[in-house]
């Protein structure tokens, strides 16, 4: 839509402006890592951050959420409403924006998930472009998520003493229109400036995966029976479920009933679940269709690099690197994919 400038000194004012009408969440330091959390002002956040422990999907698909309340002995839910305030997710990286686009595809697909849909509508995305690669675990270059493309209302890019703001939606435009801290400028000049910044930025971003974007899905198509790689990953895996909990595109859930102490009623809700856990694919009779850790890990990888490509024409790996960063057994997505590619060459 259009571009404006924001002076770096006015960042706090920008947050204050947003807070007039929204709950604002942003990256905040937690020990040696980062999390998305509520902020009361610009000074609370750490805009230069590596991907947060859990991605900001938690604001749209909370770890645990009520699907509805019930009275004991009844059969229909009596209240399926949710409470939410309009929320700005501030400072989202492009990889996480891509993650939300993946979840949008799944949850908006017929039959659309009404909880996700309503929360999503209530969220404004203000992105923050990475000018440096975060660490050695990210694969955003291969996944092509290191440059802003779409999926945000406003994108901020660091341009020295100011930010360039790309206003990309009506929602974003309304926010910019409500403040007087934004500087209008010649659109072509800003575009040129942005182009120069990106030209300087791109050489700093190196490819970590050997196969290229186009080679990835064909590689997985041939790698299902690469038992050497899958068995090695399975042997090291402790099935802790960390890799799926931190993944911006994982969305599996379990449904629970929580009954009140007086047993008069309760709520039915859902909670994040993980295909890495032993019970996940077990049926009531006891049969487990992914009993081995190796087959569960393989399932995870295929849910990123193969199945969604067939189904939705989209990779469900954003290259954020969280699964590798969080794995205490040091199972690395980069190593796994490169090992698969190596096996392919050897054949």
């Amino acid at each position: 839509m259009r571009y404006v400038y924001l002076a770096k000194d006015d960042l706090g004012k920008f947050i204050d402006l947003l807070k007039e009408k929204h709950r604002v969440v942003a990256p905040v330091k937690k020990e040696n890592l980062f999390v998305f959390a509520d902020i009361s002002g610009g000074e609370d956040m750490s805009l230069e951050y590596i991907p947060t422990i859990i991605p900001p999907k938690k604001y749209i698909m909370p770890q645990k959420e009520s699907l509805g309340k019930f009275d004991m002995g009844e059969v229909s839910m009596k209240d399926t409403s949710i409470e939410m305030e309009p929320t700005v997710i501030f400072g989202m990286h492009t990889c996480d924006i891509d993650g939300l686009e993946c979840l949008d595809v799944v949850f908006h697909k017929d039959p659309a998930d009404p909880y996700y849909k309503k929360r999503r509508k209530n969220v404004t995305i203000i992105g923050y472009e990475c000018m440096f690669p975060c660490d050695e675990y990210a694969t955003c270059v291969t996944m092509d998520t290191h440059v802003p493309k779409a999926g945000y209302d406003i994108m901020m890019t660091d341009a020295g003493d100011k930010y360039i703001l790309h206003v990309n939606s009506k929602q974003g435009d309304a926010i910019i229109g409500s403040g007087n801290i934004f500087k209008e400028a010649d659109q072509d000049a800003i575009k040129k400036e942005l182009k120069d910044l990106r030209e300087k930025k791109l050489p700093k971003f190196k490819r970590a995966l050997n196969p290229g974007y186009k080679e990835l899905q064909p590689l997985f198509e041939k790698s299902y029976n690469n038992t050497g790689v899958w068995d090695d990953v399975g042997r090291r895996c402790v099935s802790c479920g960390n890799c799926t909990a931190v993944c911006p595109t994982c969305y599996c859930f379990d449904v629970y009933d929580d009954v009140k102490l007086d047993m008069s009623g309760g709520e039915r809700g859902r909670v994040w679940d993980s295909c890495q856990l032993n019970e996940f694919a077990e049926v009531a009779g006891g049969e487990n269709f992914r009993e081995e850790r190796s087959s569960r890990q393989r399932h995870r990888y295929y849910r990123k690099f193969d199945y969604p490509v067939r189904k939705h024409d989209k990779f469900f790996c954003t290259g954020c690197g969280r699964c590798t960063r969080t794995c205490m057994a040091k199972i690395s997505l980069i190593e796994t994919v490169n090992d698969l590619a190596k096996g392919e060459q050897d054949v």
Partner: peptide
Amino acid sequence: NKKVITIDPLYSPVE
């Protein structure tokens, strides 16, 4: 700012 949002009872069973 918190508002109550009505949700289609997609997960609510019928009797």
